[in-house]
Every structure is written in structure tokens, then in C-alpha cells.
């Protein structure tokens, strides 16, 4: 009799816990369904139509996707985005790691960390505006300084050869602080006795970094790489503020091209098709990265 009561109570408690658990995840689930899943499904639906935003849509099947494959402007924007990612990710990650290790191993000052994260507190739009003024070829401070040290004037955002690198530099300037902070947090999880032991064995800073820091930082590294890679494929706001895809389409990144199609050319169906494609590619890239970096394992266990 006593045993039976206990069983019932345990089952009841488990059910109560399950309900509480569901209640806890409910707000997030509702948000996910309403703001992520539903729009994604809608985008896929719209991508099968010729919706112009202003007229009732007709279903056109996969015509938008076929058009995309044969659209040189789409491939150009994909290529432009890829160059941005290639400028952005290696530099931002390396700089962030360097800053994190330096502030961890050399100067553990709160003020310094605050300075490093400061640009990230600014919105992309403000960062874009500030740098647009600084990088102006004739009126900007950067060129005044270049002239002062005897270097020739640079077009930066106005030159098709330098515009994408300039946009990437603005993003790196803004985001490196966050990357550094994430790495810094990761570094705090590495037991200090490992370094002490290594130092007793006579290891120098470089080999400690290579053999202790880097392997033990891998889960954080994976997180940083995945989020910043996905983020840089979606570069938009800095471009919208500074170059609007120009000059001569040198910064017409994929999200800008989607925006142009949807809201300037009134081709919502086509814009949705490109969005869905970008979404699928990013999911694949993310899965691949997680797999390669074994993101769910830590060498500390």
C-alpha cells in the first residue's frame, strides 16, 4: 500500500514537472513559431509565386528558382558576399583571439576590456555613418591623415576596388570586440594549473597557446565561427548606409540584392526564392562547421 502511494506520487510529480517544464519553454516556443517558423514557411510559399507586393500573387511553381540559376546578377552578388566573408572571418577571428589572449595573459584590466567592447555597443547604422564620414575621399579625416604622412588619396567606399574591403573593415572594427569578449570568457574556463605545469616544463608563450589554449578553446571557437560566418553572409546594414550596393555594384551583396528585388523592383516572389536558397545554404554550412569542429565536445571532460 505504502509502495503504491509512492509510485503514484512519483508519477504525479513527474507530470507536474513536465507541465512546469513546458510552461517554461512555452514563451520561447511561441516566439519561435510566430517569428521564425511561420515567416520561413511563408517565404517558401511566396517564393513559388510572382507576387509584386501590389497585386494578388499567381503560383508559378519553381520558375523563380530557375530564373535565379540563370541570373548573372545573382551569381555576382553571391561572389561579392563570399569575398566579404573571406575578408571578414579570418581577420575578425584572429584579431579577436589576439586581443582576448593579450588581455588575459598580460593586462587583466576591466577598463581595457570595456574599451575593446565599446565599438560593439554602437549600432551598425551609426558605425556605418561615422565611417562614411571618416572615409570620405575629399572631406574625410582618414585621407587627411594619409596625406599628412605622404600617402596618396584613397577612394575607400567610393572606389570599386576598395569598397568591399572598406565595408569589411567597418564590420571588423565593430565586431572584433564581441569576438574578443567571447574568447576571453572561454579562456577563463581553462584551468590555470595547466599553464603553471607547462611553465615548469619550460614551455614558452607560443607553445602554451598552441597546445593548451587553442585546443581547450575549441567549443568557443566553434560558436564564434558559426555565428560570425552566418552573420557575415547576411551583411546588409553597413552596405545600406554607406554604399547601397555601389560603386558599380562592387558591394551588391546577396541581402542587398534581395532587398532591391523585394522593395525596389517589386519582385517579392523572386526575392523570397533567393532568401530561401540563402537560408538552405547557411543551414548546410552551419551543420558542416559544427561537424568539422566537433562543437559539442570539449577536451576538458
Amino acid at each position: 500500500m505504502a509502495a503504491k502511494t509512492r509510485v503514484v506520487t512519483r508519477a504525479g510529480r513527474r507530470r507536474r514537472e513536465a507541465i512546469a517544464g513546458l510552461l517554461f519553454v512555452a514563451p520561447a516556443t511561441v516566439g519561435f513559431l510566430a517569428f521564425y517558423l511561420l515567416p520561413t514557411v511563408r517565404a517558401f510559399q511566396i517564393s513559388l509565386t510572382d507576387w509584386s507586393l501590389l497585386r494578388a500573387p499567381n503560383v508559378v511553381g519553381l520558375a523563380n528558382y530557375r530564373r535565379m540559376i540563370g541570373d548573372p546578377a545573382f551569381w555576382h552578388s553571391a561572389w561579392v558576399t563570399l569575398t566579404y566573408v573571406l575578408y571578414n572571418i579570418p581577420l575578425q577571428t584572429a584579431l579577436g583571439l589576439l586581443l582576448a589572449v593579450l588581455s588575459d595573459r598580460l593586462a587583466r584590466s576591466v577598463a581595457l576590456r570595456a574599451v575593446i567592447i565599446a565599438p560593439y555597443l554602437m549600432s551598425n547604422v551609426v558605425a556605418g555613418l561615422v565611417w562614411m564620414l571618416l572615409l570620405d575621399p575629399i572631406l574625410g579625416l582618414t585621407n587627411a591623415w594619409l596625406a599628412h604622412v605622404g600617402l596618396p588619396r584613397q577612394g575607400f567606399l567610393s572606389s570599386p576596388d576598395e569598397a568591399m574591403a572598406s565595408v569589411a573593415a567597418i564590420s571588423i572594427w565593430r565586431n572584433t570586440g564581441l569576438t574578443a569578449l567571447l574568447f576571453y570568457a572561454g579562456l577563463q574556463a581553462i584551468p590555470k594549473h595547466l599553464y603553471e605545469a607547462a611553465r615548469l616544463e619550460g614551455a614558452d608563450e607560443w607553445s602554451m597557446f598552441r597546445r593548451i589554449t587553442l585546443p581547450l578553446l575549441r567549443p568557443v571557437l566553434a560558436f564564434v565561427l558559426v555565428t560570425s560566418l552566418v552573420g557575415s553572409f547576411q551583411v546588409f546594414d553597413v552596405i545600406a548606409v554607406t554604399t547601397e550596393g555601389g560603386p558599380a555594384q562592387s558591394t551588391r551583396a546577396i541581402l542587398w540584392y534581395i532587398y532591391e528585388n523585394a522593395f525596389k523592383f517589386h519582385k517579392m516572389g523572386y526575392a523570397s526564392a533567393i532568401s530561401v536558397t540563402l537560408f538552405s545554404v547557411l543551414i548546410l554550412v552551419t551543420l558542416l562547421q559544427m561537424r568539422l569542429l566537433r562543437a559539442d565536445h570539449s577536451d576538458l571532460d
Partner: peptide, 16 residues
């Protein structure tokens, strides 16, 4: 030249 014309437009260059 076009490669040196930023988004600030002619009015800013003239005013400066």
C-alpha cells in the same frame, strides 16, 4: 573624379 565622390554629395564639397 567619380572614384573620389563620397556619399556627402556636391553641396558638402561646395560648402567645405
Amino acid at each position: 573624379g567619380q572614384e573620389n565622390l563620397g556619399n556627402l554629395k556636391a553641396v558638402a564639397l561646395f560648402s567645405a
